[in-house]
Design a protein around this nucleic acid. Sequence first.
DNA 1: ACGATGTCTTGAACCGGTTCAAAATATGCG
DNA 2: CGCATATTTTGAACCGGTTCAAGACATCGT
Lengths: 369, 369
Amino acid sequence: MCYVFGMVAKISGSGGVQPDGTVKLRDVAKAAGVSQGTASNVFSKPDLVREEVREHVLKVAQEMGYAGPSITGRLLRQGRVNAVGVAAIEPLSYFFEDPWARDLLRHISNICDAQGAGVALVSALSDERVDWNIQSAVVDGFILLCVEGGDRLVEVTRARQLPYVALAIGGDDDSIPAIGVDNVSGARAAAEHLIGLGHRNLAVLATTFGLEGMGPVDEAHVRAAMYSTSRDRALGYWEALEAAGIPIGSVPIYETRETRASTQAMMELMMGAETTPTAILAMSDKVAMWAVEWLFRHGMNVPGDVSIVGFDGVPEAEVATPPLTTMEQPMAEIAQMAVDAALGGKQMTGKRYLETRLVVRETTAPPRA
Amino acid sequence: MCYVFGMVAKISGSGGVQPDGTVKLRDVAKAAGVSQGTASNVFSKPDLVREEVREHVLKVAQEMGYAGPSITGRLLRQGRVNAVGVAAIEPLSYFFEDPWARDLLRHISNICDAQGAGVALVSALSDERVDWNIQSAVVDGFILLCVEGGDRLVEVTRARQLPYVALAIGGDDDSIPAIGVDNVSGARAAAEHLIGLGHRNLAVLATTFGLEGMGPVDEAHVRAAMYSTSRDRALGYWEALEAAGIPIGSVPIYETRETRASTQAMMELMMGAETTPTAILAMSDKVAMWAVEWLFRHGMNVPGDVSIVGFDGVPEAEVATPPLTTMEQPMAEIAQMAVDAALGGKQMTGKRYLETRLVVRETTAPPRA
DNA sequence: ACGATGTCTTGAACCGGTTCAAAATATGCG
DNA sequence: CGCATATTTTGAACCGGTTCAAGACATCGT
């Protein structure tokens, strides 16, 4: 590739430049006295063209102010953009705000970088726009976040007939290709860790189960959850509790809206109750870190007074004070599989489950004697 | 827009479907017995088509497994993608890692969201790839980060003949359209704040001045800086110092590489010196927060023992412990102007300077008596 | 019943390149 | 020098839609 022009001035008059001033490959070819095919090769496959000719064409192109082959023309013929679209049922800023999404995109973009691919962000927030946004995204494949509650997003994406993959397994639809972690076993491991340290008095700080609502919830609510991620994590906690002979009913579950305000409101409730837990099972690092903040602000020591284990293993968890014990998702692997699926050209099928890994840091300790 | 198909199966055999199984608008039109123009309207301008006809075409399309109008075909004709490209001389992951870039993109994407535009991330890290990446980005305009040291990036972008704007003013080239903050006056305000509190014993924790190197630097080094952002901030500090009668030479400047490790190494140096400062002028919030972390880890109190003022006003600064005093950039405004410039269709010219604002939080206080 | 006034449809031009078989030219070899 | 082989160049087909002037058809008022 060597078609860089220093000062590009629009010189009209020479050659058959269009009235609107844009010059196309055809004009350059004509002006240089070569066929359009040769002109095309000068830019796209320079080594197929004799050096003399190449330089001449380049010179003419420069003089005419040719902007280089238009990407759309090329695209049309080649049919490949070399870019992944990442879509979520969230505003675009979600990709830069949510720690999990951010970490995921960090990995995705690293991988794309390595293979020279681009990343296009698309928002599928409002129903009216999903269609348009997905339809008009210039990409070779899609990575979909937050599938649940996103039937429409999946439907529209499918209609586009481009490879796609959903992140976060869930829903009953087996025809949706997805990659995700085994939330049940991960959550079980988190609970086992706490129980193994001697905690018997637990509470769950939950991520969202459905479209709305927050507060203490019961088993039925959990089982009826719309978001399988939250449900499965609860299920995993319960497995560990049952195995340890701790009644499920004795472990209250507080549903948050995954905002700082709602999380801290739930902490008020949790720590204001008659019996307060010595350890908290948090369904995401994000809420876990807000919980820690609340505890500190209320004079409690972590892990001295209360232990807490998060979920996700976002980068922030590692540098938090104190560093957060958490269940780490294999993000790099997830990202790699997702990009492969989206850019691979073939539609992936079925679900792939990956395992999480317990990372013990400094927010968990045995309960005070 | 209502061309959503439920189950899309590739039914070949009906109509003139291509051997490779892909069906195009032409095939649908033929199969439906309408002209291609009408078929096009069914998808792009449904209200121009009689309902009956529209539904029939839609039905045929669905039966044939038509994926909807190909975006490239449309693009070619319309010549507009409705997307901005954001490019930096950094790996793609920079957009998700660096607090400033992240904040910027958060705003950019919010704005794009609002106007239904997409965001494409492009990396211009390696010289070999700049050309290709910029050339092949399917966007209507570019927002370029980190212009300095990015002559090539600007050059290539210019050659593309698409509107673009550089963020971070700098360099001497007046022909590069740019938006940025007035670093000199911002830095002056930061220093004045500290001086106003009574500090006379200051130190500067600097962002990068050039391609490499870290450690204490002198005036000449600063003046010869490659990155005008760092240089201008130093210049602003000096203005305030001079006005207060504090000799510039008495305020050491420690250049970091803007990494945690290098920042904390500089803190070692700074606080290990004969005379230690009572207040630190940090050229970015990122390094400021690492400095705070170092101070706490070494048993020092902020702002009790040492005051510190950052620069940028990233969201993290607000929720840090303690919340960071900083010079806030008007990010929303910057983002809005940048998007307008990139998507506006017309090339913006000249430079636009915006002012920063001092936000006093909890990392600055009068020096200990 | 007739011209005027919409409302739909059509057909062809066009968007801006890439590709590939075939033709033209250059090079190598005995 | 003549033929075989490489290297370049050409021309036309093709990628998949949108657009718009002009034609076809339907409706309305008188």
